[in-house]
Design a protein around this nucleic acid. Structure first.
Lengths: 223, 223
DNA sequence: TGACAAACGGAACCATCGTTCCGTATAGTA
DNA sequence: TACTATACGGAACGATGGTTCCGTTTGTCA
């Protein structure tokens, strides 16, 4: 009766297309929410409570749910925003003159993305070893692009011919899950280099300098 | 420490030493609990509810808590049981004639352990990139043993001299987190081989055959 | 066999978190 | 300025899961 219909009243969910003339404050809030969610999910992964996102965005939880029907929807919106440029990168890598180098560049880029946005690795873990982090089309396109990148690099003799896209996906997933929050950037780069070395033909990277030497993590060590 | 906190009345917690004359039924139940917890945590990781463990063990939750003051304690008990043989393996690998081969064998073994006991990978993720999955002594011993294994394999010229124990730990963690539940055994073996190839000097394994669907890699391995 | 400490089961408690509901506030408009 | 659709906040709800409590059962020993 008074308030909307029996169902929810969110406008077209998170669809950016058909921007149904949002009220100015609503538009502002939506952006705040996206920003807050990005910040928090980048650092803490998918596990941040909605309440915290709402708090950081200076908004009530209701407002979050008015914009995104579900936590998953919010997450997926963020994910897509991350995946899209990654797809562009993969495609241009596949078209590069030297697909071998382009492959390495792409892997490095992906690793950076994992580090910058922890939730991406979470999503990858949840959906198995392939790159299809969401049921969205983008993920399919992404894996297609990486497949082509791989094939071209193999044709160019730069990547081992016995390596499959599954191998690549699995290694990428592993990279993402070498819990980035515990790994400093130099260490991450070393891992990227090692992974690439395992896939490339006759490659033996110079590993970027990491921590001084010994393993002793600050006193207490484990935990 | 864990024992004798002010609160509960559990007998020495999970300490097997000083087996305080458990009543026959209590002993039986304790074993049932450990067995059930192993089964469930192996398949579902740390996230299995205590209730489910209790149910499978055919005991009440109270009985679980009488044996293990906390879910974490139960988990740690299982973990130690897993880590101990792994430690033995690492030590004997470090003492092997060919530390290069022994290293590969150990990595394979570790990977199997991840697959057999999903919770191990969970623990590793939670504790960062090093092997120290718990604050227990065993984990310290384990990383020490692996360090020695690494050094000996490097002295023998089998592992790249620029690889550090941190690198090894990180790659192992990645291996564990290439979510084993989504990866069939052949794929896992391929990843193990790739990781080893990245660490060893001049190695290019023949990757074990994986799934049939993917791009046919029968091109044969490298030497 | 009787008594009692030891052990048991599982309801209840508490905290967390996703989601919904609804009374209230306000941007946009006439 | 007044009116109303739109949007807001946040309390409340329901599900889940770890932990505690306590009345009841049972193994053990004399």
């Amino acid at each position: 009766m008074s308030t909307g219909t029996t169902g929810r009243e969110q406008p077209e969910a998170a669809t950016e297309t058909a921007e149904r003339h949002l009220r100015a404050d609503a538009q502002r809030n939506r952006e705040r929410i996206l920003e807050a969610a990005t910040t928090l999910m980048a650092n803490y992964g998918i596990d941040v409570p909605i309440d915290e996102i709402a708090q950081l965005a200076q908004v009530g939880v209701g407002t979050v749910y008015r914009n995104f029907p579900t936590k998953g929807a919010l997450f997926e919106a963020l994910l897509m925003a991350r995946l899209r440029p990654l797809l562009v990168a993969a495609r241009s890598a596949a078209a590069a003159d030297d697909p071998g180098d382009a492959f390495v560049t792409f892997v490095r880029r992906l690793s950076d993305e994992f580090a910058d946005f922890k939730a991406l690795a979470d999503a990858m873990a949840a959906s198995g070893i392939d790159l299809s982090v969401a049921k969205n089309e983008i993920s399919g396109d992404l894996i297609a692009a990486v497949t082509e990148l791989l094939e071209r690099a193999q044709q160019a003799g730069r990547i081992r011919p016995d390596v499959t896209i599954s191998d690549v996906s699995a290694m990428m997933a592993g990279l993402g899950h070498t819990d980035s929050s515990f790994m400093d950037p130099p260490q991450r780069q070393r891992c990227v280099a090692l992974v690439c070395d395992s896939l490339l033909v006759g490659a033996r990277s110079v590993l970027p300098q990491g921590e001084p030497a010994a393993p002793p993590p600050p006193a207490g060590g484990w935990r």
